[in-house]
Design a protein around this nucleic acid. Structure first.
Lengths: 348, 348
DNA sequence: TTGTAGGCGTTATCAC
DNA sequence: GTGATAACGCCTACAA
């Protein structure tokens, strides 16, 4: 492998200019439009390619103090919703010619310098997007801030420097969609109401948004809790009990795909046709198309949009590190009618 | 922000040594164990931290000719299976203190330098993992090789420098699992048999592995094709027809989750209990637990292992760029019995 | 053990 | 527009 100086020298000899001119020609976008200059630039470029010259991004980073890359830090056990988040961040950064480093870590590893990721200990990124999908512990906060670069949180309901989904709007939209097609008795299958301090904001926001929407429509709310960690068989039997105990409900809004799946299977087991006899809509991490080819009407978490917004916010913070950015809440899109939601039965 | 030299000078003044000694102390892991040295090193380290000193990875990259990072290049429309691939690559690289850049691109964008990712045009990574999950066109090959760094392919059945799943082994394992619990009439719901040149190796390998396993057991094979792109309703009705036309089959091995889902729902619609009346096992991109809380017996694609193996292979190639690495085929694990597979009905 | 000098590939700056 | 030079932070080699 020839080094850069040798390559420049060789090209300079062939073209008949100094090595510095060769370098400058390669670095600068063509401004001069005179034919002789353009012709020479073309020749230099093709020669450089022939010699296998590639600009060294690290050298530029040293000189400029900018690395041209950003890291996204996530928990190792984070769910598939991150897939679309990655996509959003990656695409938005690529539009600005920035690279995305993806780092998955165990939160406990942040404490010790030996196990914390190198990108927190060394200067190598221009900014950081942190996706922990949980309340942040003080130790985590300190470890992550240690890097000293601009930082944006995702999936966290903070006043500043964070991007998250607008779950209150999402559940209002779901409720309104059901109201519009004629439902009046709409139930919410809520996520577990954990202790306030540990609960994820989305569980709380979805409850509140539902209550608001129902109150605004002058209807009485009906909230049932569903724990989604007790296995299929138990979940299914509890869902069947639920449908039995609340026969007047014509539509269920489900906080998770697990609860939604249980309701769907329970309906199937009870001989109810979906959506003819019962409408079901669920907040879902994956795609609006569900999985295994099953059709579902889902409030798809707009994670790709969250990622794109986080990247944009980070770019603003890099340009202006001191200024706090107001929290960005990304709205949900309306769910597809037809699949598992439809008008209520008239005779109910 | 103070620059590095100023920080070293400041620390040197406080401790009473030269700036170079400060730098060396920070760079070298402690070898000297004499109390005075250890004490001083400690002091220097804490002072460095107080001054906000961070090693600059780019400067080291320039000096050493190594960037300490590797890129993973994927199609923008690649499926969720990539999620676990990322995890494998990321974790394995982190064990060697390397970072992973994730880049999603449209294959068409590779042709033009304006739209091709910067990491192919500039020197900024030590190696490349390319996950296209398709036959590679010559243009793509050329664009990707342009970067000139060591390269490993994933999900591609090449003789060298690639890591993929061992689908023949996977389908043999699935078949043997079913044979062991008593099945004799085992069907394969195969992926569409596209033209040889465009077919993904996995479709072909799964057919062949199934044929081998059945032949070895002295049983006659039964292969049906299933197109998974025609929507739920049509897929379901075709699956019902299939079950009607092949009532003697006690277990279906499905090439995809879509076909598997259709069979499961068809069984439900026909009043068959799974796995009591019919066993169903599917090759699945996601997790072995399926989604929406539904229990399925899946041949889970070992993508995390593929990622880890690809990272390891790339490390070998970086250490030894010229030497071709033999293709690594990652085996599948045995599927969970109970969920949607079990012994056949005795009276069948 | 400690200090000095030089070079890596960039880009910015200044003289011409 | 062209050419030389300095500086970025790091590491290695060598001298003291």
């Amino acid at each position: 492998m020839k080094n850069a100086e040798q390559i420049f020298q060789a090209i300079a000899n062939e073209v008949g200019v100094s090595p510095r001119t060769v370098k400058r020609t390669l670095a600068q976008p063509r401004k001069d439009t005179r034919p002789t200059y353009v012709e020479r630039a073309k020749r230099i470029r093709s020669l450089a390619e022939a010699h296998g010259y590639r600009p060294n991004a690290a050298a530029r980073a040293v000189r400029m103090g900018r690395f041209g890359q950003v890291a996204m830090l996530t928990r190792h056990d984070v769910s598939f919703q991150q897939f679309n988040l990655n996509k959003g961040v990656c695409t938005e950064l690529a539009a600005h010619d920035l690279h995305m480093i993806l780092a998955e870590i165990r939160p406990g590893d942040l404490a010790k310098p030996e196990t914390s990721p190198r990108l927190l200990r060394e200067l190598c990124v221009d900014g950081l997007i942190v996706h922990f999908a949980q309340k942040i512990s003080p130790a985590t906060l300190e470890a992550v801030s240690y890097s000293g670069v601009p930082l944006v949180w995702t999936n966290l309901d903070q006043a500043t420097d964070s991007v998250c989904t607008d779950d209150a709007q999402g559940v209002r939209l779901a409720t309104e969609t059901l109201l519009e097609i004629g439902h009046r008795r709409i139930g919410l299958l809520a996520g577990p109401h954990a202790k306030e301090e540990f609960a994820h904001y989305s569980v709380r926001d979805r409850r509140e948004g539902y209550l608001q929407a129902m109150q605004q429509a002058g209807l009485s709310p009906n909230i049932k809790e569903f724990k989604d960690d007790s296995g299929y068989a138990e979940g299914l039997s509890r869902a069947i009990d639920l449908l039995d105990s609340e026969p007047h409900i014509t539509a269920w809004i489900c906080d998770s795909d697990v609860g939604g799946g249980a309701i769907l299977m329970a309906a199937l087991a009870k001989g109810l046709k979906v959506p003819r006899d019962l409408s079901v809509i669920m907040f879902h991490n994956l795609s609006p198309n569900g999985s295994m080819g099953l059709p579902i009407s889902a409030m798809a978490l707009p994670m790709q949009k969250v990622g794109a917004e986080a990247a944009r916010m980070l770019l603003r913070k890099i340009a202006n590190p001191q200024e706090p950015q107001p929290c960005c809440k990304v709205p949900f899109s309306a769910p597809p009618v037809i699949r598992t939601i439809g008008p209520p039965r008239q005779n109910k």
